[in-house]
Write a protein that binds this DNA or RNA. Structure first.
Length: 353
DNA sequence: AATCCGTGGGT
DNA sequence: TACCCAAGGAT
């Protein structure tokens, strides 16, 4: 469906003029280095600008070039990502940069399809990096863009569906034709972030209000349309803070795939409160060869994920020395500082140690 | 297509 | 408080 009866030229002019005047100064806007743009776009996935800023600054200092990141150990990369969430982003970025080093000679590909073939690069990131770093005329449709266009074009389809995103990509292609791609895409996102916000949009000061179909039909608050999310599953877990006489702490690494992939944690099992002490004792014996009696601390922590809620009960275990462990590792505090932990475990660490 | 994957901020 | 939602991608 092509855009009909819509003032495309006025849209372009209003949007770009507004952006020139109102665009924010952001760390990843200081250069057009494709690597910097790429890292920023991965960090910005489902993550707010203010949250990303300090992580981006530190990450670029630690891994200033594709070479530096490619040569880093995975533990270092995960540690730099600690607290940002969606950890497969870091693992995929690390893998993709290695791919760039040995397949593309260290140059971030300029061809959109080549770039999109890299791990962790989907339709949005492809368009964002290709347009911002290489001035390619590619749409970059994120949540902001879908919201802005759902309103301006009065799109009533569920923006959670892939078909809707593809339709909006087609609309963006038509709207951006002949404009500077880097400016156009960022302008659309910036407008969504600063003016056309999810709640309380600032329509009176919007450069697109004359042509905004939702504004003119008083439907701004009703758009975009999104299907409701289902409620989160709840789980109760028991975590063991196992300490020996030297003050060393036992930790274990989570699987490389799935939830909190590859992060380190206190030995932990899923069990109902009534059976936790026994379950934990058996787990420590079977997996870590630690024989001791877990003691309740009475402390509990909630760890809220998008789709899951953990209720973690904390137990203390004291042992004489480091015993051999199949799946875990004994750490001093200095060693622990080198490894990445989930946020819930950082809290346990602060309370218990 | 629907679900899984983190965490923090805003209302 | 209890949602919503954020510069999404993989499976």
């Amino acid at each position: 469906m092509k855009l009909t009866h819509f003032p495309i030229r006025a849209f372009r002019k209003q949007l770009l003029t507004w952006y020139e005047k109102h665009k924010r100064s952001l760390p990843w806007r200081e250069s057009k280095d494709p690597y910097r743009i790429w890292v920023s776009e991965i960090m910005l996935q489902q993550t707010q600008v203010e949250t990303v800023k300090p992580y981006f600054e530190q990450f670029m200092e630690q891994f200033p070039t594709p070479e530096a990141l490619a040569e880093a150990e995975e533990d270092e990369v995960m540690k730099a990502w600690e607290g940002l969430g969606y950890y497969s982003r870091a693992r995929h970025l690390h893998s993709a940069v290695k791919e760039v080093m040995h397949t593309y000679g260290g140059e971030v590909p300029k061809d959109p399809e080549d770039f999109a073939s890299l791990k962790g690069v989907g339709p949005y990131t492809k368009g964002a990096v290709m347009s911002i770093a290489h001035d390619r005329e590619e749409p970059a449709v994120d949540g902001n863009v879908m919201r802005v266009l759902a309103r301006v074009l009065l799109i009533e389809a569920d923006v959670g569906k892939q078909s809707t995103r593809r339709q909006i990509e087609a609309d963006v292609r038509e709207l951006m034709a002949g404009t500077p791609p880097a400016e156009f895409n960022q302008a659309l996102m910036e407008l969504g972030a600063l003016v056309c916000t999810p709640k309380n949009p600032d329509c009176p000061n919007c450069p697109l209000k004359q042509m905004c179909r939702a504004y003119n039909h008083e439907m701004v608050d009703a758009l975009p349309i999104k299907a409701k999310k289902k409620t989160q599953k709840q789980q109760t877990l028991a975590a063991a803070v196992v300490e020996n006489e030297d003050g060393d702490i036992l930790v274990e690494q989570r699987p490389k795939q799935g939830l909190l992939a590859g992060l380190w944690q206190f030995p932990m099992v899923e069990a109902l409160p009534a059976s936790q002490r026994t379950a934990l004792k058996d787990y420590l014996e079977d997996v870590h060869h630690v024989e001791a009696e877990p003691a309740e601390t009475g402390q509990t922590f909630a760890h809220v994920f998008t789709h899951l809620i953990w209720h973690i009960h904390v137990y203390r275990v004291h042992v004489r020395s480091r015993t051999p462990t199949r799946a875990g590792r004994w750490l001093t505090r200095t060693e622990a500082a080198q490894l990445a932990f989930p946020v819930s475990h950082q809290k346990i660490w602060q309370q218990q140690l």
